[in-house]
Design a protein around this nucleic acid. Sequence first.
DNA 1: CATGCTGAGTTCGCTTGACGAACCCCGAAA
DNA 2: TTTCGGGGTTCGTCAAGCGAACTCAGCATG
Lengths: 156, 156
Amino acid sequence: MVTITPVSDATYDRSRCSVAGTLAVVGEKWSLLVMREAFLGVRRFADLQQALGAPKAVLTDRLATLVQEGLLSREPYREEGARQRHEYRLTAKGRDLYPTLVALMQWGDRYLADGPPPLALEHVDCGAPVHVALVCADGHEVPGPREVLARPGERR
Amino acid sequence: MVTITPVSDATYDRSRCSVAGTLAVVGEKWSLLVMREAFLGVRRFADLQQALGAPKAVLTDRLATLVQEGLLSREPYREEGARQRHEYRLTAKGRDLYPTLVALMQWGDRYLADGPPPLALEHVDCGAPVHVALVCADGHEVPGPREVLARPGERR
DNA sequence: CATGCTGAGTTCGCTTGACGAACCCCGAAA
DNA sequence: TTTCGGGGTTCGTCAAGCGAACTCAGCATG
């Protein structure tokens, strides 16, 4: 039989794949959209709720797990003549999800657009559009998966 | 009142954000993991099912919508003395999700690791590790969201 | 021919999660 | 003292995910 055996047959433990792990943290419904709003500067429960249209109970839950996972921090603040409240701010760990969000956005801009992209990203220093790219440590641009060799890391 | 108004108050239509649109296509449970397996070369229903451990009914559904959305194509093939079957192959549209998957993986490798990353990506030409980066069209590296100005596209 | 096997689904109950509406709690303002 | 509004919680309903069992086509074996 001449089956082309794919990359694995239990050669490495798929349960420990980082994509799955990341999705376990931010893969539930609304989580990534909450993060997007956070990158847009939205910090308050009511603003998030209005921007997203998610049910309050779900939003409460997602915020709690994002805080618990350390992507957002819950900080007290107070406004003129109002009682103390909390807002949700990006942590460094949360900020590192930015390329993921941009990658998702870029795909959508390319394939779902019925017009100009709803949101444009510019480099603040030079005004040029920002996008995600695959590069290797030697500085070569990597056009796609065909130029990439994926292999299991060393066992421990 | 000195509220810091965030990026929008109905200044642009959030329902047309590309992140949300992309997630509508690949945001359901298992979809992105199916895509990951596709990038690893897995093409057959049974192999996917075994690799992922997803219920067959869900997998059937996810494959159908991925085919319908044009990220995978369903191609007939036949093996020695077996009846004709189908396999699922990446299309160009599906292949363009690669940076997204790599970005998710990279975040997981950084924050969820209790050891070396389960999967290493190498540039096939030079063997150097591959990663995603934010760059602007003028070639500057963009370290993070702070160097990016997000603004709504033109209305139509 | 009858039988069995295998890959790819489908069907079926069950459990979990998402949903929207209603309700609650607190401190400030009136 | 009542009212108001942000930030939730609770509740009943409905959709989605789950594993196990069943189906169906067609090749292979007897």
